[in-house]
Design a protein around this nucleic acid. Structure first.
Ligand SMILES: [Mn+2]
Ligand SMILES: [Mn+2]
Ligand SMILES: [Mn+2]
Ligand SMILES: [Mn+2]
Lengths: 218, 218
DNA sequence: ATTATTTTTTAAGTAAGCTTAAATAATATT
DNA sequence: AATATTATTTAAGCTTACTTAAAAAATAAT
């Protein structure tokens, strides 16, 4: 399947699994940087390939086949991120940028080699789960957004859900890294800010960031 | 530039550097598995992009810009081969197959990371020279085809110039590997066969193979 | 409920990278 | 040198993945 198709099913899958379900063509179009018309066209085409169900004016729904394709691409993306991070010490932003291209030109054979080499990891350096060869995510996600964390508690950072360079740069400069532990000092009710301690340093985050930083109770 | 363009300039470059100069559209078409008409079209298009000089019925000639592009793709190809061979112990055929795709989706940034990681190697696992970042091949090739080697002499294998799975499988099964040393026992004048010793085992190769195995005097 | 706004769909068109078929030029054969 | 063969080019057409503009439907606002 083409790069365009792989990116399309991937965008639907991610939209369905993270944001508030509204997987209309225009929604996907915005994410992919294409016109609404192009997205509608593509949706119709993918329906004939049994990758999704399309009904005029309704939300797009991936078939099992479509989900499998999406998860296979996501697997490759995250395996590349893990490999590049480990081997070349590339940043969270750099690995994403490269993986975005490599994911489409990677055989299942190579993906498995990478996975084996890394010890079949279940998470990538952003904390995103890595689907297995069968396209299944076997881990259960118990993490919550930092914005919903409780005061005076210890947490472990479990996920940095973004693809924004500035966010990642900020995180790496402030020790906000997958696996690191933090202590939540205060939740500011009116400003929605969160004060936390990390490596004995106090930092204050606003909701833009605390909504995309996920944590687990320690 | 697109995958089609990168493969086109690469094919011209390789043709000019290995076979008997005859870089006509049909020649390239055959290598890329496209029609002659498509090759002519592409040649005209690349001329407008200043990647090659095109004159009706004449051989195609890469410009400096075209050569540079070809060498940049070749650099990425061979760096990937070196990396995959080292990390995952993939065969000479497997690394080529994967590199053929990855070469087009690799940033210069990543290529340099790979090169650094490997210690900036000058040769890939086939013995093919790896161009540097500036697109230069700095090594001098003193090797000769095994078909032209002398009897009763020791040689080191310096290059396996092929992309054929059967050839590579044969090589790996018989210790014919980049860097290994061999002893040429006899050149058969009439049959063009070469008898050699490798790890105390005698093997007899015909010209199909001795023309693509390159060696250096020991 | 009617009107205004937004989104989706349809229609028409474009560029890249191919194809096959026919015309033309180059090369090889006799 | 004339002819046959082969290669190259031109022409016309196809598919993919997009675009913009207009029509139609859904949604939001009054
Ligand atoms: Mn990513
Ligand atoms: Mn990730
Ligand atoms: Mn190769
Ligand atoms: Mn090689």
């Amino acid at each position: 399947m083409s790069v365009a198709i792989e990116n399309f099913v991937k965008a639907i899958y991610k939209n369905d699994h993270h944001e508030t379900h509204n997987t209309k063509p225009g929604n996907i179009a915005k994410k992919l940087g294409i016109s609404n018309a192009a997205a509608t066209d593509m949706a119709k085409k993918l329906a004939t390939k049994d990758l999704l169900n399309y009904e005029k004016y309704q939300a797009l729904q991936l078939t099992e086949k479509g989900k499998k394709m999406a998860l296979n691409v996501i697997r490759k993306h995250r395996l590349w991120e893990a490999l590049l991070h480990k081997m070349f010490d590339m940043s969270l932003h750099e690995i994403h940028r490269e993986a975005e291209l490599l994911e489409h030109e990677t055989s299942n054979f190579l993906a498995n080699k990478i996975s084996d080499y890394l010890g079949n990891p279940k998470f990538d350096p952003h904390g995103d789960p890595i689907p297995n060869e069968a396209g299944e995510i076997t881990t259960i996600d118990t993490s919550i957004a930092l914005s919903h964390s409780k005061e005076n508690k210890n947490y472990t950072i479990s996920r940095l859900m973004s693809d924004d360079k500035e966010f990642f740069d900020f995180c790496s400069q402030n020790g906000l890294k997958y696996g690191n532990s933090i202590f939540v000092v205060k939740q500011f009710a009116t400003t929605k800010m969160t004060q936390l301690l990390i490596n004995n340093k106090t930092i204050l985050l606003n909701e833009d960031f605390t909504k995309i930083i996920y944590v687990n109770e320690f």
